[in-house]
Structures are given as C-alpha cells and as structure tokens.
Computed example of a mutant assay.
Amino acid sequence: MSSAQGQQHQLAKKITKQLAKEKKLTFFCDFDGTLSDFVLNPEEATVPLSTIKNLATLSEHPLIDLIILSGRPLSFLQKRFPKSFKLAGEYGSKTNFTDNELKKESLPDKTQAKLLELVKIHPHSHIEKKDHSWVWHYRRIKESLSEEKIQHLMTKLSQTLSHSSYSVYHYNCVLEIKRSDISKASFVQSHVQHNPDHIFIAFGDDIADQSFFEMIPKNQGWVCAVGDVITKADYYFKAPENLRSFILHLKEQLQMQEPLPC
C-alpha cells in the first residue's frame, strides 16, 4: 500500500468513527477535475456510473448530507446525477433543494463584445453562457496562450467591468466573468453556520475550491485536494480516479459497520 493510499484509508476510518458516534457529516464535492476528469469538450464531462452508484449509497446514509457543488449550471448537473442527489450549480447560486434564486443581472455589453471577439480570434475556443456568468473556454488552444497573455486578457476584460457587480476569474483553462457576490465559499459558509453540530468534508481541485476549503472549521472536518493546484489541504488525491476509488472504499467501510440504532 502506498503512503497516499494509507492516508486515504486513515481518512475513511476517521469518517466511519465519527459516524459511529452518530455525528452528522456534510459532504461537499466539486465536479470538474474532482469527480470527473477534464476533457477537451466540457459538455462531454461525465462521472462513471459505478461512482454515481457509490455516491448514491453514501447519500442514503441517514447521517450523511451529500452535496455536489460546482460552477456548472444546475441543468448540466441534473443531466448527470439522479433526482435524489442534492445539487448546487453556479457556485451554489442555484440548487435543486432550496427555493433561493438570485435575480439575474446582465453582463455589460462591452464585456460581451470582448468575449465574442476572443472566439473570433481563437476559433477553437468557445463561450459558455450561464445565468450569472459567461465563461471563455480555451483548453483546446492552451499551448498557444502564455500566462502573460492570459493576464493581459484578464486586464482588458476587467476594464470593461467598471461600475458592475462582475469580476474576472481564472480557473483551469477558463476565464470566467462572474458576479462577485456568488462563490462556493459563501455557499459553504452559510451551510456551516446553519449546521454548527455537523462535521464536514470537502473535495475540490482548483482555486475556487481553495476558497471554500477555508470555510470548513478547523477540528470539525477535513479538506481534500485533487490534483496539484491546491497546496493547503488535509489530504491529497493525485487525480479524480483516485478520489473515485476512495469513494468506493468509504462505501465499503460504511457497509461493514453495524446498523445504526433506530
């Protein structure tokens, strides 16, 4: 057994130990780069059916509140997970388990024009339009764009956003122009505040996830990084496939536990 596998087995034991004490666990999990591997066409990203079944088993545990928390639109997540799953799309601004929904605000015309211009200049890139953001995907052309060029584009886009509620964010091969008041961090913070007696575990792979990791109270849970972007975490998984293996292992460990008392 490798040291990484040993740490993951240790984490599974910690979780099962807390659940055996009838502690409630909130389980936050990102989608892209965490559960699902990155693909050239974002619309083709999927999670293996076996992993969905394993997650479903975890979500049926009476003490586990499992939430898929992603920047993806809620409609995208609903096509990939069963109706029984709790899904929080667009960084938690739209969910299938609460009635709260933010009022839409139009992206400034100058910003829209700049993004559409980028697609004309880079025809193998594309724009994704969501309710509260526009995303420029450049994974297919990433080799032709230096970090300096990306920073220059971010500056140009930021200049079109004066006096608006939007900001520019750089994630894995995307530039996203998103409302500043929408974030995974604010969603998780609210959830933690409303469930002070829970323990928490969070899985993510990029800086958007690093921000919500910071909302998990110390000594009240664990934060787990997938890949090599996040540098501050309690546990590390090399790739999504390693996390998927851990989910299977955790499911098996919980099934070995004695049934909880009624």
Rank of each mutant, 00 (worst) to 15 (best):
L40P: 03
P42V: 07
P42I: 06
E44A: 13
E44T: 15
L49D: 12
L49W: 07
L49V: 14
T51I: 04
I52W: 05
N54Y: 10
A56M: 08
T57S: 09
T57P: 04
L58N: 11
L58D: 09
I64A: 00
D65M: 00
G71E: 03
P73F: 02
L74E: 05
Q78M: 05
Q78Y: 00
R80S: 01
P82V: 14
K83W: 04
S84F: 10
K86D: 02
L87V: 10
A88K: 13
G89S: 04
E90W: 01
G92Q: 11
S93E: 02
K94N: 03
K94F: 01
T95L: 05
N96W: 09
N96V: 09
T98N: 15
D99V: 08
N100G: 00
N100I: 14
E101W: 04
E101N: 09
L102T: 09
K103G: 00
K103F: 04
P108T: 13
K110Y: 03
K110T: 14
K110F: 04
A113W: 07
K114H: 13
L115G: 12
L115I: 15
L116H: 14
V119A: 00
H122N: 04
H122M: 01
H122S: 01
H124M: 05
H124T: 06
E128F: 12
D131I: 02
D131S: 10
S133I: 08
W134Q: 13
V135E: 01
W136Q: 03
W136R: 03
H137G: 06
Y138P: 03
R140P: 03
K142G: 00
K142H: 12
K142T: 10
